[in-house]
Design a protein around this nucleic acid. Sequence first.
DNA 1: GCCCAGGGAATCG
DNA 2: CGATTCCATGGG
Length: 282
Amino acid sequence: MKYESLDDKVILSEYTSFDIEQTLECGQCFRFTKLGEKEYVIIALGKVLHIKQQGNLTEFYPCSLQEFETIWLHYFDLTTDYDHIKNILSADPVLEKAIAYGSGIRILNQDIWECLMSFMVSQNMTIARIKQIVKTIAERYGDPIGDYYAFPTVQQLKRVTEAELLDCKAGFRAKYLKEAIYKVSSNIIKLDTFEQKPTLEIKKELMAIFGVGEKVADCVLLFSCQRGEAFPIDVWIKRVVQDAYFEGKEINLRELRQFARDKYGEHAGIAQQYLFYFGRNQ
DNA sequence: GCCCAGGGAATCG
DNA sequence: CGATTCCATGGG
């Protein structure tokens, strides 16, 4: 991998396993807009970033070299060796096929707060509607950045009422969001301590929030805490695994978790993303 | 109208 | 324990 600065752009080249479309459209984040073929605007970490891929080049703009190195290199997980992980997972024929389909997926390192709120919103919703509701919350309570809005901080959401969240169309999740805002804003849960905590301890803290179950906790662990062993199980992944490994037979969540641990181990999370992207688009 | 969506809590056996 | 039901809401 190489990158160089040119005006207000950074140009990435000589990389493997990075496709912006697959990375954004595989369901791990919700704040992006497609402008064209492999051209996107993403709103993250309080910034608006354009990304355009053609051939074996990726442009990031507006973006200084320093910003790229301190923020986006990590955000897009560009320092992780995905070829190595893919080699390990490809030993499994099912994964080999899923990887062939979504070979450019990378797991983003997102902001924990936004990730938690977004996946609380996600329960029992379609991806299109999740995007719409997260966008509404940002537009009503977040800071404007050009034509877009940053996802609001905990402080900015502190005084928001359940009725106002209902008005954002959060539905029955409005009271869940209130609960998360309360626990984080009052420091009952300290998100900035997660980095140095064991995975299971973080999971326990997250699941103590009314409205956070295993699925949402696993999404937060995988998409914002760099816990590659987390394996979020939703309706899609359940179907894919059942169809690919159990002849379509119904299996319960406990068996499914055990299966993922045994089969994919420390790379269960990325395996899950390959399977999700493959399953949802076939 | 009915069914389902990147679930989770409450209830029931 | 495991299984079922309810929860808001919009789109197919």
